[in-house]
Nucleic acid binder design. Structure first.
Lengths: 163, 163
DNA sequence: TGACTCATGTCAGAAGTCTGACATACGGTC
DNA sequence: GACCGTATGTCAGACTTCTGACATGAGTCA
């Protein structure tokens, strides 16, 4: 086909497969989230806040894999809808810790159930050992690509005076 | 950690890891493609055409995991830039087979080298067996998600009984 | 203390992608 | 031959996310 086999064989490329898997997963999540009036980023933000109350806008952006500008747009909408609250002013620096409201938590519960079912379906063909192996492989690819950058959820952002 | 274990543990979720890996890969590709004036979708389109000359707009959209509308916008720009050609009229139905021009092939060659280096770096921590295992796992996840519900990119998933 | 660096929140404009809609072409069925 | 469902190419508008830019606050170091 090509001259000197320069092309990346899409049939066997792990990168392409990764993109495909991610695309299919995203589509499946959007499908179950849409009836709830949620996008994937929207859901990710809520899930992050449930597990790590008080995350900042920038923390949430890193955890949801979008820019802090995009997350800011979303957070403003979520605040307006009463799903999330942020203090009007920063207690310490410029960081505004966000938290779920009761309504936000209810909203998240439904979404979590839906997303969980998608994930279970995705993993239905893999036993525990295979899942662990896949997890290690993905982690290896991530680390190799980003050299050593930080972790999305386990945020090191707490390194300020108080802690 | 929530009330009844409702939350999806982002620390261990394979879905989250998949999203993270895909995000990091995409960022790494954008980084090397940007100097060439190319986006990831742009590159995907060219790579697809190199391996399967004559693919239609809809084919390319499916292969690049975007809608055919998005791919159409891109294809028109690529035609304008002399990177891709399509016949003015369809020979058979409405399908317009696209092909790379010489310029498109040159453009792709540079991009392919850049992307290949990214993929090699991503896989640098995995031996052949691990890569094969990861490939099988991803394929399994894709098939499991596609099986029941939606179709990745295209329109409503109505299959005709005789189709 | 002052300068430098890094991170944050935010605004504004640009780019990419999506949903909705329409006309058309193919294939099978009645 | 007419009809219906599916698939394609395309236009238009809306939405989401991104890049660029700015001011502010914290930490480091001389």
């Amino acid at each position: 086909m090509s001259q000197d086999g320069a092309g990346i064989d899409l049939e066997t490329s792990l990168g392409y497969l990764l993109k495909e898997a991610s695309s299919v997963l995203r589509a499946a999540m959007e499908e179950v989230l849409r009836p709830l009036g949620m996008t994937v980023t929207h859901y990710s933000c809520l899930e992050l806040l449930a597990q790590r109350p008080g995350l900042s806008n920038s923390d949430l952006a890193r955890g949801a894999f979008v820019t802090r500008q995009s997350m800011n747009v979303l957070l403003q909408a979520l605040e307006r809808d009463g799903v999330v609250t942020r203090p009007a002013e920063a207690a310490v620096g410029k960081v505004l810790p966000a938290r779920l409201t009761a309504r936000g938590r209810r909203s998240l519960d439904k979404a979590t159930a839906a997303v969980r079912s998608v994930e279970l379906r995705m993993l239905s063909g893999l036993d525990d050992a295979e899942q662990a192996q896949a997890s290690r492989a993905l982690r290896s690819m991530i680390d190799a690509l980003r050299g050593s950058t930080s972790i999305p959820v386990t945020s090191p952002a707490r390194r300020s005076p108080a802690g």
